[in-house]
Design a binder for these strands. Structure first.
Lengths: 152, 152
DNA sequence: CTTCCTGCAAAAGTTTTGCATTAAC
DNA sequence: GTTAATGCAAAACTTTTGCAGGAAG
């Protein structure tokens, strides 16, 4: 939903290609990680990934290792939020550029897309930062508040 | 620089008032934490705070405790970034609203102010999120890239 | 003086790593 | 068959907590 890759097959083909280009194998546990991440349009914590991954034979240490390796290969992106857990989502080159709604109650993040006008406005800020000698690669924009469940 | 409180005395008076209102004491170690945070216009990690704080008799466990308590009292704000360390800065009610430049090389964050037009553009997004049932309290906007030192 | 805060050391929680075994190609 | 990836258990780190002693008001 809202992903650039409509079918899972297409996604796995792309990921497989990208891993092979990095001399990495598309093993069963990496496949499981990608599958779990693709199932939700929001970043997941390691415990969340494990719940669904364990039944596909995914061990905790492999999950951590896979996520780091997949991030290095440009398949996964680390997402840092307000609580103790690092979160992970598929890379924007696979799902499209988006931002997040972060619930300060339960910690949950949901994907959130913004208007093109807003994205264009960011460009002016990039110029300003560049003038300070900062080389801009990306940006992060989140709205913080209460999700539907936590708003009571 | 860019802070609402020009003098340190004014800052400590405000902080002291805010703590007393919360039935908390402005102890020596809380004073040290505030002083260290006020000295830099960027969020600091706990190790960074300790380096300067130790010589003022600041213990690690007290630093963590103070930072959490000061955050609860609205004097300090937790800032989450890309690495393993939580960062802390003075609350925006003391320093003014701002955003951050985050270096993906060394992890450093620096304060960054944006135009009023950009801030106004965020309001439209808040409306959009509200329509999804999300109650917005705040926002976070960071530019990610390489700081002057890491850009080579 | 009474209550809150501190410091130490131990515990808790998340993430990483060493190494023998297994799976991918 | 080779080489890379896995799984287990142990280690490394960051952050929190219990409790006796000390400081703030």
């Amino acid at each position: 939903m809202g992903h650039q890759h409509a079918t899972g097959e297409e996604l796995h083909t792309t990921v497989g290609r990208r891993l092979r280009a990095a001399q990495m194998r598309y093993s069963r546990s990496r496949h499981a990680v990608v599958e779990v991440l693709a199932a939700d349009a929001r970043p997941l914590t390691l415990p969340e990934i494990l719940i669904q991954g364990v039944e596909r034979g995914l061990a905790q240490s492999s999950a951590y290792r896979n996520l780091n390796e997949l991030a290095e290969a440009g398949v996964v992106r680390r997402v840092t939020a307000g609580d103790d857990h690092t979160r992970f989502e598929l890379h924007e080159s696979l799902t499209g550029h988006h931002h997040h709604l972060e619930c300060t109650g339960c910690g949950r993040l949901d994907d959130f897309e913004v208007s093109d006008e807003f994205e264009a406005g960011i460009e002016a800020l990039v110029v300003s930062a560049t003038q300070r000698g900062f080389v801009v690669d990306a940006h992060r924009f989140d709205l913080l508040g209460r999700c539907v469940a936590c708003a009571q």
